[in-house]
Write a protein that binds this DNA or RNA. Structure first.
Lengths: 232, 232
DNA sequence: TGTACATCAGTGAACGCGCGTTCACTGATGTAC
DNA sequence: TGTACATCAGTGAACGCGCGTTCACTGATGTAC
């Protein structure tokens, strides 16, 4: 199927699509810019009108995937069972969705995890980290978590979920039964949040962790324009 | 410094050393077999008398590093403060050691994590996963964890620790203050174990997770020779 | 509605590169007698 | 202790490869008048 027009129309998106498909077929690293261009029906150099480098393409793809994941998490929370009024159901659903996403699309997940922090100037909306934060706020507001335990709790929950996802994706942990991962997520979320709830030491005043995503928001002064601060 | 002898003596180890140094200098992927050979003062083809492929070298390196980490974890537990008789101190020390190892040597940690499961026929002693399991047994024996909560608990703790390690190593989470990571580890370990302790649903009978390492042990029949089972 | 022209988004050839791996070889080592 | 010889552990040249990126170029598009 040859391209009809000289101008592609939306080559940027088409290249991202091709790269994403190649990642699925050959793994996070087993593909090249040339291959993605060829698959799109375009010369290798055409990509440079849309991406400064191969690396820029990888980051753009990673951000697109992250935003999709954010959406997915929001929907998973909304679809969580609410009978019984267990306020943890939403967070368990979020966790399951995160782990399932990683397990179902491991090569793409690896790409995203390896790409590291998102570009401080890029906008990933909704960012998975924001979604988790909002759900924890909601959970705390429902009385699941004391005000003292809330700060930084997202790193504890995120670490636990991310760890399970990575262990499964990298094959360090294995399961014969699909349900095992789901059950493990539930156990993990319940354990972490039960543990945080009965914390004795308040976490306020501790030196804090910050996510790369939070750093972007925090670095921006109120009313200031987006800058390239943070780049070298 | 030229090699004096035609026969190197311990080229296998020397190549592993060179590769490890290159990983530190250039990142988990930024080096080649040729470069490691050159640095060792040997022709590129010499490596093939010791490793079947570049990939085999990577796995051998990964296993060497894992065994070293296992040792490190054992020593960290042994050196944990025991006054106050808080049985969690050993597990907190283990967790800190794991996270510090990853943060101090991120490129090597990435290599190990990416290399995935260890070869089923290789022997990594002591395996970090075994060390964690033994510490959890000890903790359970000391009354920290009910017998019902013990099975599979290592995956919950491991996931939490591994997640924090990976988030820090990949730059998804960042800290200005070194102490933040240490404190977060403590919070994480305390929360997870407190949560597991007060678990309502017993985990016995759940479909189980298995680590790649456990799989190796489980797959070996009593008295049977090591086989290549599991390889394609 | 027609035309001139700037700009945008492609082409295709080339550059320069290092890579993993193979192969026929040879120097060094160790062992049996 | 000396020697023949198998084996081990190197060499060095070559194969075949695809990669990211640059460059001068040209066809297509859209806009001002």
């Amino acid at each position: 199927m040859a391209r009809e027009r000289y101008h592609h129309g939306d080559l940027r998106t088409a290249l991202l699509d091709a790269a994403e498909a190649l990642v699925r077929e050959r793994g996070a690293d087993g593909w090249s810019l040339r291959e993605a261009s060829a698959r799109t029906g375009v010369s290798p150099s055409a990509a440079y009108h849309h991406f400064a480098s191969r690396d820029a393409l990888v980051h753009a793809l990673s951000e697109r995937v992250l935003a999709r994941l954010g959406d997915r998490l929001i929907h998973a929370c909304a679809a969580a069972p609410s009978q019984g009024a267990d306020p943890l159901q939403r967070l368990i659903a979020l966790g399951r969705s995160y782990i399932r996403w990683a397990v179902e699309d491991p090569a793409v997940a690896r790409l995203v995890f390896r790409a590291g922090a998102t570009d401080p100037d890029s906008v990933v909306t909704p960012h998975p980290h924001e979604v988790l934060g909002a759900e924890l706020d909601r959970f705390a507001a429902a009385g699941g978590l004391s005000a003292a335990a809330r700060p930084g709790a997202e790193f504890t929950v995120w670490a636990a979920l991310h760890g399970l996802a990575v262990l499964l994706v990298d094959g360090l942990v294995h399961t014969d039964d699909e349900r095992a991962a789901d059950l493990q997520v539930e156990r993990l979320v319940r354990a972490v949040l039960a543990g945080l709830t009965q914390e004795e030491t308040p976490s306020a005043g501790w030196p804090a962790l910050r996510s790369a995503h939070t750093r972007r928001l925090a670095g921006r002064q109120p009313g200031s324009e987006p800058t390239t601060r943070g780049k070298r």
